[in-house]
Design a protein around this nucleic acid. Structure first.
Length: 885
RNA sequence: GGGAGUAUAGCUCAGCUGGUUCAGAGCGCCUGCCUUACAAGCAGGAGGUCACUGGUUCGAUCCCUGUUACUCCCACCA
């Protein structure tokens, strides 16, 4: 048996992933089984794998693999998102690097470049997922802009338009001056920032008096069309009906009065710039104010900026402040902290801007999502980009007015134009594309072609999906909208459960991000610790819903665990098996009795843990389930079971125990497989091969048959074996083992503290106070693992022995040499003190009449038991102290 | 400004309907070991006023009041 002592994940992982792919084990087709569907939250097509994806996809894979092993028809559909803003930005950048200006290209040429880019870099993230072991059905890989998804989006747009849920209108939108597009409210992130509050003087027209107005954005005075005060504000009553001069601009604007103004803030006077602030816009509408847009799309000042035209908005702010100061129009400047909206995608400061956009009106879903969407607002779904689904709206200029035609394609649009307006010329299609979320909200439906082809066998079978695993920060972007689409088009929500993962943070609690550079490269981690190790690291730090402070050390723990399993395989593989059957074997005193009780115990223990794990999975407590499996494998199986049945050096193991061991080991691999797919597949195969070799060898079957069987085994995979289910287990046997374990630990502790060699055989005697102390079944185990020659029940405590307690039983280890009286006494005294204190607290309860009167009988009985146990321990300790002293 | 959550060992977290799974786990730490599967290992061990305060109760980590600290979501007052 030449097996390396260090497990090498690399070759194993490559081999088995290819095997799974070759055998098409991830592929799913509708059949008679119960479906278990998961759709991947599609990552950006341009993205690379980061730790958030690792977590998210590991969880999905665990659930999918487990469901598959439970006999469900598991279907995990992968795909990517076209991410219009992010991708278009990257393509623009790439073109710029090649010296090409986007504006010099036609839409078609630009899209050609974009597709090229997508083909080249688009697959990366999905390839990386393979390294993680993700068992996605790659044959179903989708893209939000592929034919099915593109058409689905267009159909939905047309349909919603016809239902009156989509409209085009001029509204104040969040403008991203870097990406040059509108973004939705959800895509604006407000960040606290230190800024200044400028107090500006607005002189009253034709008078020397002035009013002071506070603003954080002095450059917007160029677009001022009014000043507003509270109608009941005593300070400003004299301004009623007057006009004031916008400082530095010279324009006279009216003073209006509205309750909107907060009298406490600033000076209680507010300047109104309807084109550049949503609240000002509303006031402008109310009072019929003029709206002066002073910005170009890229955030520079336009012709309304006068001498500032062409300047960037922030440069302009500086300059205008300087100019106003020189003109004596600034009263004062204060430091001020406020929140400034930034674009989620580009981080540019958002500029409120008036423009014509398309909106989706979700009011009809208000009741359904009251708890999520208290203040539901219309969703701006158009984006001023080329990369994405182009809005299927065509415009027709008819004698000065514009008619809008929404249709599936140009041909349809032309037909409508002809029928409705008797127009036969060309039409102008809307230049904008749809928000990416407008395609992702259809994902669970469009993946199965349920939009274009309602009621098809796939959508009927796979929808609704089982679990959606996603991050909580896209509840509004994505989850809520998917539910809306599901109800609108499938009359059913798209998933049964939503599992919200935590946010991956670094050790300092900071969110992992590219800018901070605090995110490890997942692929490097996999190279270092193996995919199984990294998966385990992710899962152990991620109790459901919590943020996970990621620490590489836990991947190391995962790697070590793989190695531990690997070495257990090495051990078991090396054992020689007796040719005779176990019943006639009489190899040693600690032989088959010990082994058979060991097997019994391990079986019970597995059943017990299996029950735990099932409960954990029911509650999606994956890290608990993994931890329970980890302890079962490491502590119970390796540290206890294997040590119990391990044959003495150079001696063989009996056949029955060996078979049982292989079987237990193999089943352990099944339990662990969803968490650690690679190492378990490898070990499982080796174990199955071993089993088969053994069987065919022993039964004298012909070699041809056995090689055929072997070939067959090599075609099997652990991943579609049947997952174990919990069965009845014998709690009493488990309890007895725990007693034996404590005896062994007691003996080992004595060795450790007294510096005795593990090779020196000791003997143990005990005084049991009641039948809770049962060691007969596990005597052989105690002998073997404690290196104890004999275990004797006695009634009198022996002289010159060291002592420890297991429950209420006193255990003694007679010493040949003299024991250190001082030290032993000290130990005993400490114990005595503890139990006396314990007894006091118990007695305090029992002598409290209110307790005895008020507590239920079982509780009182428990207290009485505590009292009895404590008293007997105290008596025993006193006797020992007496004997020593 | 509105709402929600969290606070338990050095770290990350379990702890179901108040009382023996009530003070736990993993990692880390300490001590001793290369015991022929594994030093990526083996054996043993130490660590906590369950944030602070008051209350309910025979009894509180658990229920209630308040305080403090942190986190998240929503709104966005110039």
């Amino acid at each position: 048996m030449e097996i390396a002592s260090k497990y090498d994940p690399r070759a194993v992982e490559e081999k088995w992933y290819q095997f799974w792919i070759d055998k098409k084990l991830f592929h799913s087709e509708p059949d008679h089984r119960v479906p278990y569907t998961v759709v991947i939250p599609p990552p950006n097509v341009t993205g690379v794998l980061h730790m958030g994806h690792m977590l998210n996809n590991t969880i999905q894979d665990v659930l999918v693999r487990r469901a598959r092993m439970q006999g469900k028809n598991a279907c995990w559909v992968p795909g990517t998102d076209h991410a219009s803003i992010a991708t278009e930005a990257k393509v623009v950048k790439m073109l710029a690097e090649r010296g090409i200006d986007k504006r010099s290209l036609s839409r078609e040429d630009f899209l050609k470049y974009a597709w090229e880019w997508k083909e080249e870099y688009g697959g990366i993230i999905l390839k990386q997922l393979r390294r993680l072991g993700a068992s996605c059905d790659w044959d179903r890989t989708a893209f939000t802009m592929d034919e099915v998804r593109y058409e689905s989006v267009i159909r939905v747009f047309v349909d919603l338009y016809n239902k009156g849920l989509i409209y085009r209108g001029v509204r104040m939108v969040n403008w991203d001056p870097q990406a040059l597009t509108a973004v939705s409210d959800e895509e604006v992130i407000y960040k606290e920032s230190r800024s200044k509050l400028f107090y500006l003087r607005y002189y009253v027209e034709g008078e020397d008096r002035y009013i002071v107005v506070a603003t954080t954005r002095p450059e917007t005075i160029l677009g001022d069309t009014a000043v507003c005060v509270h109608p009941e504000d005593e300070r400003y009553q004299w301004l009623k009906g007057k006009r004031v001069i916008v400082p530095g601009v010279g324009r006279a604007v009216p003073v209006i009065m509205d309750e909107y103004v907060d009298r406490e803030f600033g000076t209680g006077a507010l300047k109104i710039t309807p084109a550049h602030d949503i609240n000002d816009y509303n006031l402008g509408m109310k009072y019929g104010l003029e709206s002066i847009d002073i910005f170009n799309d890229n955030g520079t000042l336009n012709e309304h900026g006068g001498k500032y035209a062409g300047m960037d908005r922030f440069a302009c702010r500086k300059q205008i402040v300087k100019d106003l100061e020189e003109a004596g129009l600034i009263e004062k400047i204060e430091d001020y902290t406020n929140k400034v909206g930034h674009s989620e995608r580009t981080d540019a400061v958002i500029e409120p801007k008036l423009s014509a956009q398309w909106f989706f009106h979700p009011a009809k879903f208000k009741n359904t999502y009251r708890h999520w969407l208290e203040n539901i607002k219309d969703w701006c779904i158009s984006r001023q980009l080329w990369w994405g689904q182009r809005i299927p709206a065509w415009y027709l200029d008819l004698d000065g007015r514009v008619e809008t035609i929404v249709a599936l394609n140009e041909e349809e649009a032309l037909k409508i134009a002809k029928e409705k307006y008797n127009h036969t010329g060309t039409l102008r299609q809307d230049e904008d594309v749809l928000d990416t979320w407008f395609s992702s909200w259809l994902w669970p439906i469009s993946l199965f072609d349920g939009i274009r082809n309602p009621g098809n066998p796939e959508i009927s079978y796979y929808y609704p999906t089982a679990d959606l695993i996603t991050a909580p920060d896209i509840i509004f972007f994505w989850v809520a909208r998917m539910i809306m689409a599901g109800e609108e088009y499938m009359h059913n929500v798209p998933f049964r459960n939503v599992y919200f993962t935590g946010i991956v943070r670094d050790k300092l609690g900071r969110k992992m991000s590219k800018q901070l550079g605090n995110s490890p490269d997942p692929i490097e981690l996999i190279e270092k610790y193996g995919a199984d190790g990294v998966r385990m690291g992710m899962l152990l730090t991620a109790p459901a819903g919590n943020d996970l402070p990621f620490d590489e050390a836990i991947c190391e723990q995962g790697r070590n665990f793989s190695n531990k399993l690997w070495n257990a395989l090495r051990l078991v593989s090396g054992w020689q098996v007796t040719s005779e059957t176990s019943t006639t074997s009489s190899t040693s005193a600690t032989g088959t009795d010990t082994n058979s009780v060991a097997v019994q115990w391990m079986e019970q223990r597995m059943a017990q843990v299996l029950e735990e794990i099932e409960k954990d999975f029911d509650q999606y407590r994956l890290s608990e389930a993994l931890m329970a499996s980890y302890k079962l494998a490491w502590d119970d199986f390796c540290s206890w079971y294997l040590e119990m049945v391990k044959p003495a050096h150079g001696t063989p193991i009996d056949r029955e125990t060996y078979d049982a061991t292989l079987s237990i080991f193999s089943r352990l691999m099944l339990m662990l497989h969803p968490f650690m797919p690679f190492v378990t597949e490898e070990i499982w195969h080796q174990l199955e091969t071993k089993k088969l070799e053994l069987r065919t060898k022993n039964e004298d079957s012909d070699e041809h048959l056995s090689s055929q069987l072997l070939a067959l085994t090599s075609n099997f995979s652990i991943m579609n074996q049947h997952m174990l289910t919990s069965v009845y287990y014998d709690q009493r046997l488990l309890d007895e083992f725990d007693t034996a374990r404590e005896v062994i630990a007691g003996v080992r502790n004595i060795r450790n503290t007294r510096g005795l060699s593990p090779k020196e055989t000791l003997s143990v005697s005990y005084i049991a106070k009641d039948d809770r102390f049962q060691v007969s079944r596990f005597e052989g185990v105690i002998r073997k693992l404690g290196n104890v020659s004999d275990i004797t029940a006695i009634t009198e405590q022996p002289a010159g022995a060291l002592q420890f307690m297991v429950g209420t039983a006193e255990c003694y280890v007679p010493m040949s040499q003299n024991v250190n009286k001082e030290e032993e006494l000290k130990k005993l005294q400490e114990d005595l003190k503890y139990y006396e204190g314990f007894l006091r607290s118990v007695m305090a309860k029992l002598s409290n009449e209110k307790f005895v009167g008020g507590a239920p009988a079982p509780v009182i009985e428990k207290e009485r038991n505590k009292q009895r146990d404590a008293e007997s321990k105290i008596a025993a300790l006193k006797a020992q102290i007496e004997a020593l002293g």
